[in-house]
Design a protein around this nucleic acid. Structure first.
Length: 885
RNA sequence: GGGCGAAUAGCUCAGCUGGUUCAGAGCGCCUGCCUUACACGCAGGAUGUCGGGGGUUCGAAUCCCUCUUCGCCCACCA
């Protein structure tokens, strides 16, 4: 593979075959897939491998079907992830980004990005991805940045972007706010501490339960349910908050669940979203007791200041215990949020952030699903989509990072003005008073640029020809993990800014996992490097193995400890195909004598042998099967159908039976060559989306191809009614079965491979008799016979078999045979048939069945019974002849 | 706590609208073959209470209920 793949890829690129511009304009309807842009610093892993292979299969399929296929690639600046990479680099030099300052840091990230240069795109090429690289974008490009500003400003003008003071998810390591989607909930076994809070007048106490005792430093109330009898008398009274010695009120709030814990809850408006709401309802103060790094801040007693949140937790608990105020500690399983980039535990934090009001955007997106505009594969994923939209919450889009699209908002500091300006272009002065302005320090969520990709990558907000041609697109191929991050948001932005959904088909494939069903990851060390597989077995083998191991909606399991086992199927198949191709080519007349004149379409039908007709019919059936499977996103089924056709039908049977005709200058050779060339050509085209390299390499070698011809733009095969030939399929099937039966008898009796045997065939059906006559040579050769006779043999000793159509086969073996053994074999065969006959008679004797089952089913079952009875009689007679006891 | 998915050969999985792919494929395993396209191959073969139990039906791997195990998603009971 390595000797052909990179060379072919280069040739494809030089010919610009992956660009729809290279096709004649208007030659077909556009077909567009937007590639999920990998992070600019990413290294190719199996997830990318699977995702991009699927897209490549679909785009190549549609390209060959004549569509103007555009697969649009790009990279994502990946705010947090990329900033983290460069900050780690700096840390090795003993520096932080603050040492460099904002401008120098951003320049440093750019340098890093330019230097590593989206290596992942090169890696995608190595697995054969036929994206249109001439259109590659980067989410921080000028054009896409303009689109980001345009959308921000428009949404602001429409009242859909706002600034607010709320509890958000804060990562104390990345030092930024995160959206709800960027928080990964993880179930952990934690504790529930029950703390006693004394009443202000010392007349008693109230027990509250918490999973985060350190937050009590910022408590500003205790809340109980208004109807809770136990606390009715306490509402309005005060608690003397231990450790900080502050008087806080007891309030009544419906949000409190009387059944949980003690029914009383501590309220920390600055550190819990639910408490924040309670605080607002009761006009409670918010006391922020933590720094951005999640250390205890100044607004607390001295001894806590500067403590890490977990140290503070221990200390608070210890002090409660010492004071006799720790009621009890329970173990408690609950979900804790973690940062999706660094896995640090999220701290809910009160701060000023920018938000997008989502409900107005979600409504049309939901409608597009409900009215059938959007189709999900697998269908059930649509439920995830709609339930997420139904419960959608506002999107926090500001990030306290330096790497990203800076928020286009300027604040005027002039006294008496204080205007906030949201602008499409940079401002130097306040539009209100002309005074000095400063831009918002924050950048936008990375996903705020990627949600625009279906149109921003085509030039929006400019009205470009690309935008007119390629929006809306068609298929989105993605992992379910980014359904909410990206896919759903693109639909919302597409509807809002373009008035149409960006695509209609959403294919969500599974996840690549190891044999323990763990997601492959760098930290677990259970990953497989796709490039290592490409190196060892070739991109085609990688692709085939991924595609064939993947059915709609299920995960792909691969064994990182057994690359051979995981990819042998693909490698073996590629090798098989290569050798079949070499064999066919070596038996064709040279390129000087094109085969046009011996094309099967112009060969007279009466020149075709039964095997030829069967091959052509099988080929046609495979075209139908594979095409339908590709269309239905059942890529593994397409791959399996083509595999079966190439390996079993073409290599094992057709080529084997045609060899005498193919060798040298034999009669009928031109017909066999035409059939094998035609059907192999079709097979290569059908397989090309999955195994692009080897199919191209072989296809180009066939006579009649010009140097410029590429299979990647060759026409997709169409079904041909003339190929339909059920009789040939059935009759050649009998031939195959017959050969198999004789081979089995040979193996059973240990006949040496080199020794020919005789065979007698007793067939009732005239079609079978004719088939055996027509393929006499094939049967003789493939079963290694010295003689093939039709009709009953007078010999008694030998091997017997019965075919499914009732035809009996007898292989006389003279003294070579062990009579006792054959008697035993026949006996068990007769028994098997007798059991079948019995259950079948029972079934047909059942009046319910005969009357209620469809008549054709009943008829079919009757037919089976007849065949089995006949076979039983034949074998019983043989037993008698052999003198079996 | 809610919702969803999976469980079929040693392994990874097909089996779509109950009855002709009905018990399958690939890998692995066993036997025999270096038969000149291919040993990454050829030929032949073994292996299954279709997770357990119940039900619907003339008929269930397939539909329904239930249990068990595994996985995923969602969720502000502190």
């Amino acid at each position: 593979p390595s000797s052909i793949e990179s060379e072919l890829y280069q040739w494809w690129t030089e010919r610009a075959l992956f660009s729809p511009d290279s096709h004649a304009p208007g030659s077909g309807q556009p077909y567009v897939i937007m590639m999920p842009p990998p992070n600019v610093t990413a290294v190719l892993h199996m997830g990318h491998g699977l995702n991009n292979t699927v897209q490549d299969v679909l785009i190549r399929f549609e390209r060959m079907r004549g569509r103007r296929a555009l697969w649009l690639p790009g990279t994502d600046h990946a705010g947090i992830a990329t900033q983290n990479v460069v900050e780690r680099e700096l840390a090795e030099e003993g520096l932080t980004r603050f040492d460099l300052g904002r401008d120098a840091f951003v320049e440093r990230v750019w340098a890093h990005v330019r230097e590593t240069g989206a290596a992942i795109l090169e890696q995608l090429k190595a697995i054969g991805s036929s994206a249109d690289w001439s259109r590659t974008y980067f989410t921080l490009d000028e054009g896409l940045s303009r689109a980001v500003r345009e959308t921000f400003v428009r949404l602001y003008e429409e009242g859909l972007v706002y600034r607010g003071h709320y509890i958000i998810n804060w990562c104390p390591r990345c030092l930024t706010a995160l959206s709800n989607e960027e928080v990964e909930k993880e179930e952990v076994d934690g504790h529930l501490w029950h703390l006693r809070y004394p009443l202000g007048d010392g007349s008693g106490q109230v027990t509250v339960a918490t999973t985060r005792p350190e937050t009590m430093l910022g408590d500003t109330a205790v809340a109980v349910h208004p109807d809770d009898e136990r606390y009715r008398g306490l509402i309005g009274r005060e608690i003397r908050l231990p450790l900080v010695d502050r008087l806080i009120p007891i309030v009544a709030d419906e949000a409190v669940d009387p059944a949980f814990g003690s029914g009383a809850v501590k309220v920390t408006p600055a550190h819990d979203p639910a408490d924040f709401d309670i605080g607002r309802r009761h006009s409670l103060p918010s006391i922020d007791v933590m720094t951005p790094e999640a250390r205890i801040s100044l607004a607390t007693p001295d001894r806590f200041q500067g403590l890490d949140r977990y140290e503070a937790r221990r200390q608070v608990v210890a002090e409660f215990q010492a004071a006799g105020l720790l009621d009890r500690v329970e173990t408690h399983r609950h979900a804790v949020g973690h940062c999706y980039r660094c896995n640090t535990v999220i701290e809910p934090r009160l701060s000023d952030q920018w938000f997008v009001r989502m409900e107005p955007l979600a409504r049309p997106a939901l409608e597009a699903y409900r009215d059938g505009t959007l189709r999900f594969v697998p269908e059930r994923r649509g439920d995830d989509y709609s339930s997420w939209l139904e419960g959608i919450r506002d999107w926090c889009i500001s990030r306290q990072l330096w790497w990203g699209h800076r928020i286009p908002v300027w604040y005027c500091d002039a006294t008496g003005c204080g205007k906030i300006s949201v602008s499409r272009h940079d401002l130097n002065a306040c539009p209100g008073c002309g005074g000095p302005v400063r831009q918002d320090e924050d950048v936008l969520d990375t996903w705020f640029s990627s949600w625009l990709v279906p149109f921003s990558s085509l030039g929006w907000p400019e009205r470009t020809p690309d935008l007119a041609t390629y929006y809306p697109g068609h298929t989105m191929v993605s992992a379910p993990e980014i359904l909410f991050f990206w896919v759903a948001r693109m639909i919302m932005s597409g509807l809002h800014f373009m008035g149409r959904v960006p695509y209609t088909d959403i294919y969500l494939h599974g996840t690549v996992r190891d044999t323990q069903h763990r997601k492959m990851s760098k930290s677990l060390g259970n990953g497989i490097d796709p490039l290592e597989v490409v190196d060892k077995y070739g991109a085609d083998a990688l692709r085939y193995s991924l595609i064939s191991g993947m059915s709609v909606g299920t995960d792909v399991i691969l064994d990182p400890n057994d690359l051979e086992g995981s990819f042998a199927a693909g490698r073996n198949f590629a090798n098989k195909l290569w050798n079949a191709g070499r064999f066919i080519l070596s038996n064709l007349p040279g390129p000087a004598r094109p085969l046009a004149g011996s094309h099967p379409r112009v060969i007279r039908r009466d020149e075709l042998t039964l095997a030829d007709r069967w091959m052509i019919a099988r080929c046609d059936a495979t075209v139908v099967e594979a095409t339908e499977a590709y269309q239905r996103f059942r890529l593994n089924e397409a791959a399996a159908a083509i595999y079966r056709f190439i390996w079993s039908d073409l290599a094992d049977w057709y080529i084997e039976q045609a060899k005498p005709r193919l060798y040298g200058d034999q009669p009928g050779g031109d017909v066999a060559r035409a059939v094998v060339t035609q059907t192999f050509d079709v097979a290569l085209r059908l397989l090309h989306p999955v195994m692009p390299f080897i199919t191209e390499a072989l296809w180009r070698r066939f006579p009649g191809r010009s140097a410029a011809d590429s299979i990647s733009v060759a026409r997709w095969p169409r079904p041909d009614a003339r190929a339909h030939d059920p009789a040939a399929v059935r009759d050649f099937g009998v031939v195959q079965e017959l050969v198999g039966a004789i081979r089995a008898i040979r193996a059973e009796y240990g006949i040496p491979p080199g020794q020919a045997v005789r065979a007698a065939v007793t067939a009732e059906s005239p079609a079978t008799v004719a088939a055996v006559e027509q393929e006499r040579g094939t049967i003789t050769r493939l079963a290694k016979l010295s003689q093939l006779t039709l009709g009953e043999s007078r010999e008694r000793v030998g091997g017997h078999a019965a075919l499914s159509d009732g035809t009996a086969v007898f292989v006389p073996l003279g003294e070579a045979i062990d009579v006792g053994r054959e008697c035993g074999r026949l006996g068990s065969e007769v028994d098997r048939l007798a059991r079948l006959v019995q259950s079948q008679e029972q079934k047909l004797g059942n009046e319910q069945f005969v009357s209620r089952a469809p008549s054709e089913v009943v008829e079919r079952e009757r037919q089976k019974l007849t065949t089995w009875k006949e076979q039983r009689e034949v074998l019983t007679r043989k037993r008698e002849l052999l003198g079996c006891v």
